[in-house]
Amino acid sequence: MIELRKLRYIIAAAEAGSFSRAARNLNIKQATLSRHILDVEQRLGIAMFDRGTRGARLTPNGKTYLRTARRIVKEFEELNAWVRDTRTGEVGGLAIGFYTSFTAGNLRATLVGFRDFYPRVKLRGFERNRQMLLEGIENGLLDIVVMIGEAQYPNLRSRPFWSERILVAMPEGHPLASRERIHWTDLHGERFLLTERDPGPETRHMLLSKLWMPGYTPEIDMDDIGRDTVLSAIALGGFISIVAESALGIQVPGVVFREVHESNGHIRIGFSGYWREDNDNAALHRFLEFVAERYSLPPLSGQHHSSQQSGKEMA
């Protein structure tokens, strides 16, 4: 078997046109380089160089061998670079689960930004309900999921990511549409339409906590439809809905959005990331670092991969 370093010696000698110059370039003795090249020639039974006082020129067999040697060395270097980058999270894959709108908002902006910063990490997105997302983490199909709220799950790590404004979606002809901001008390007596799918149940709980009072329970219809269909139904009149800011990317004619406010300002809802404690995917740790830097979050304890180590800086 021909050692890789001997292939490098042959390439260096061919490029320098001289054994002495190649040896100087490689910072080795000329005798060492000559001995290794001669060993290759003897093993293969061919002469690769015509040696003379003016240097060393490749023979026809040497030119043919050089083409293959360069390809082998190049592929070996590319393989080493791939392994190194995979270990640091700059190359690989990342499976992300979510159930919120991907048309706008922080989730979309974060994934687009991460893809631009780490173009060799292949992102795969999966839109599922909460239970299926948690099962996906458990069985290893997903690296991380992004969900509304903060909760604790066995064997999972989590951290808050970002927040989005809470909006009322209503027909453009609704009496409240003329207001720039809406308060919870303005919504008493309204009929709400929500999806049975996530995050519909969480939205329903929020509505009940904000609007319920003795003698009054808000009227909430829950249908097995998607977010787009909910907004399309609202455009027809008769319903309003509560959505996160990311829903602004869903353009439905006849629907307007207004912020929900409390006494201390507009209301926001938090999003968190969840992942398995034993997930050693380096791309996952890169993603967590990216989110932390993007939203000025404190670093996670126990993380070993950092942007400083990669020699990159966030724009």
Rank of each mutant, 00 (worst) to 15 (best):
R120N: 13
Q131T: 09
D198T: 08
Y118P: 03
W82L: 13
L142S: 01
G140N: 12
T203C: 06
L187W: 01
L193M: 07
G149E: 02
H183G: 06
F192V: 03
E202C: 02
P119C: 06
T203A: 08
R115P: 01
S163P: 00
I148A: 08
A69I: 02
Y99C: 12
E78C: 00
G93I: 00
R70P: 06
A109F: 08
R87P: 07
E138M: 09
A177K: 14
S178Y: 02
V112H: 12
E180A: 13
Q131A: 10
Y118N: 07
G97A: 00
G149R: 06
G97W: 01
E77R: 13
Y118L: 14
G105S: 10
A177M: 08
E138S: 12
P199H: 07
R179L: 15
V146M: 02
R165W: 07
H183P: 00
N106R: 14
T195P: 11
E202K: 15
A104K: 02
T103K: 15
R128H: 12
R108N: 07
L111E: 05
L123G: 03
N80V: 13
T195Q: 10
A81D: 14
T185D: 14
V121T: 10
V83A: 12
E164Y: 09
S178I: 09
D116T: 13
R87N: 13
N106E: 12
R130Y: 04
D85C: 07
Y153C: 06
T185H: 10
W162Q: 04
V121S: 05
N106F: 02
F114I: 13
N139V: 03
G149P: 05
Q152E: 10
G189S: 12
R70T: 07
I182C: 10
R165T: 10
P119Y: 10
L193P: 12
H188C: 08
R128K: 14
T185K: 08
T64P: 00
R159D: 02
G149D: 03
T185N: 11
E75D: 09
Q152W: 03
G125D: 02
L79W: 13
E138G: 05
D198E: 10
T100R: 15
Y118D: 04
N129F: 06
T64S: 14
T195D: 07
Q152K: 06
F117L: 09
K122R: 15
I137Q: 05
F76M: 02
R165D: 05
E127Q: 09
F114H: 10
R84L: 15
A151L: 07
T203G: 00
R108E: 03
